[in-house]
C-alpha cells in the first residue's frame, strides 16, 4: 500500500485559510475544534512564510506512544487514526504532539476534555466505512471514495500536497529543482552585471 503524507510548500502558501475552512466544512467538526490551522512566521517581517499544519501522521507517532488507553492505530496507508470509543479525553496526546494536532471540544474550569478529535487524512475511523456513525464521529471518509483530503484538493496555490509520499516528494523535488535553477539564473544575472558578458547563460535547467 501507498504511504500517504501531507506536505505544505512554504513558498506557495498564501495564508488564505481555505484548507482550514474546507476541513471544518467537509468533516462537520464542532466549534472550537480545528483539525488544521495555518501558522505564519515572521508575520509582517522580511522572510514571512506560512504553513498549513495538521496531524502529520507520524511513522512513530508520539500520541500513540503516550496514550494511556492505547486508542491509536496506523492504517496500511500510514495514516494515524484513533478510536473514539476508547479515548477517555485525558489530553496526553496533545502534550506529546509536536504539531498541536489533537483537539478537544470543551474548555473551561474543570473541563472534562471530551473525546479527542484530530485530522484523519479524510480516512474516517474504525467504524464501518461510509456509515453515518463514522461521519458523525470522525468526519468524511474521502479516501474510501478514491479522493484525497479536501484541504489539499482545494488548495488554490497547490501549496498543500497530500497523497502517496513518493508522488508528493516527486512534485516537491521538481519544484525545488526549478527554484534552484531560477536562483542560479538570478545569480548568473548578477554575475553578468559584474562581468558584462556571457550570452549563453540562460540559467534554465532544460533548453
Amino acid at each position: 500500500m501507498a504511504n500517504v503524507k501531507f506536505y505544505c510548500d512554504s513558498e506557495r502558501c498564501i495564508e488564505c485559510n481555505g484548507c482550514v475552512t474546507a476541513c471544518k466544512n467537509e468533516n462537520d467538526v464542532p466549534w472550537g475544534v480545528n483539525r488544521r490551522r495555518v501558522v505564519t512566521v515572521k508575520d509582517g517581517e522580511p522572510g514571512e512564510r506560512s504553513l498549513s499544519v495538521a496531524c502529520m501522521h507520524c511513522s512513530d507517532a508520539p500520541c500513540a506512544a503516550v496514550c494511556p488507553v492505547d486508542c491509536f492505530y496506523t492504517t496500511d496507508n500510514g495514516i494515524v487514526l484513533h478510536d473514539k470509543d476508547i479515548c477517555i479525553g485525558c489530553g496526553y496526546c496533545s502534550y506529546a504532539c509536536p504539531f498541536g494536532a489533537p483537539q478537544f471540544p470543551e474548555s473551561g474550569a474543570f473541563s472534562s476534555k471530551g473525546k479527542m478529535d484530530k485530522c484523519t487524512f479524510c480516512a474516517g475511523g474504525p467504524e464501518e466505512t461510509g456509515s453515518a456513525e463514522e461521519y458523525q464521529k470522525y468526519g468524511a471518509n474521502r479516501l474510501a471514495e478514491g479522493k484525497l483530503p479536501l484541504c489539499a484538493e482545494m488548495c488554490a496555490t497547490k501549496a498543500l500536497l497530500a497523497g502517496d509520499a513518493n508522488v508528493v516528494s516527486d512534485i516537491y523535488r521538481q519544484r525545488v529543482i526549478n527554484r534552484s535553477m531560477s536562483t542560479l539564473a538570478s545569480n548568473v544575472r548578477i554575475q553578468k552585471d559584474f562581468l558584462g558578458s556571457s550570452p549563453d547563460l540562460t540559467g534554465k535547467a532544460t533548453k
Binding site: E106, G108, A109, F110, S111
Partner: peptide, 8 residues
C-alpha cells in the same frame, strides 16, 4: 448549573 458548578 454549568459544568464546573456541577463538579463543585
Amino acid at each position: 448549573l454549568p459544568h464546573w458548578g456541577f463538579i463543585v
